[in-house]
Amino acid sequence: MIKLYDYPASGNCYKIRLFLNILGVAYETVPVDFYPGLEHRNADFKAINPLGQLPVLDDDGFVIRDAQAILAYLASKYDAAGTWFDRDDPVALGKTMMWLAFADQITATSSAARLHDVLGFDLDVDAARKGAHAAFRILDDHLIEQEFVGEYWLAGDRASIADIACFPYVALAPDGGINLGNYHGIRRWLARIKRMPDFVEMPGIFLEFDEPMAAE
């Protein structure tokens, strides 16, 4: 069975749990004591991932790190219909890869602000929040442009692994003191993702009662 080296409060681990649930693929987790144990920095874990980062996926002996790489791998192997990662159309592939890379930009800023605000990590939180807002403006503009052409997802007219990759640390931004109130395109996109069948929550990302539930 698939093994996911996991930390429940990590948005990057969560995106893998979310996608596995959407695909209906069974897996087991190996809980890693990211905080306060800092187990990801010890020698045993670095033998699994020399970068000392979560998540890591072990699929029957094939070990792969990096959340975005794991999403691409899982889609290629387990999404029989091929809707989550279109590798045949060069334009669709290019767009998906572009937004997959953008997810790292969000992690570097929004996730850093959250680590500061929640776990007291010593870092420049003002710079992190500023960076997150810069990324969110780009994301918000893109999502609103998508709505104008009748496409409601990052890389086209259907949800892809790019949406899964960018979703967690946008949704968790308020944990880092980043207000999403003015990003209307982002807020509608978050609500669309939360309404997907087989959506699962994580602490800090939950279905809100006052969110619009009507279809687009």
Partner: peptide, 13 residues
């Protein structure tokens, strides 16, 4: 640890 941290992170917001 993970169980308790999950509970606290649900309360935080």
């Amino acid at each position: 640890r993970h169980f308790q941290q999950t509970i606290f992170l649900q309360d935080r917001p």
